[in-house]
Amino acid sequence: MTAKAMLCRCEDVTLDEVMEALEAGHQDIESVKRYTGFGTGWCQGKQCVVACARVLAKATGKAPQLPITPRPPLHPVALGVLASLGDSEEG
């Protein structure tokens, strides 16, 4: 992979940006997510989290880390659709 390889297409995060985050001391996947913004865009990480976890594992020599905490909804949903739903019982 080249330094400009795109790891997160939604938020335009490249390989060298992930490496820069690691060098800045962000060594866990939740921190790298926040520092680079990977996984916070349209797909919410479905396309990029595996690639980023692999890069992290390789660079740190540690076992691949847990996926980032998934953020609902699974797919983007319009506010108008959500507003028309009833309240669910769950907390």
Binding site: R71, P72, P73, P76, A78, L82, A83
Partner: peptide
């Protein structure tokens, strides 16, 4: 939110 700004009804929530 849609009550306060109705035009936002078509805007999608990405994450919570």
């Amino acid at each position: 939110l849609v009550g306060a700004v109705p035009v936002l009804a078509g805007v999608r929530v990405l994450r919570q």
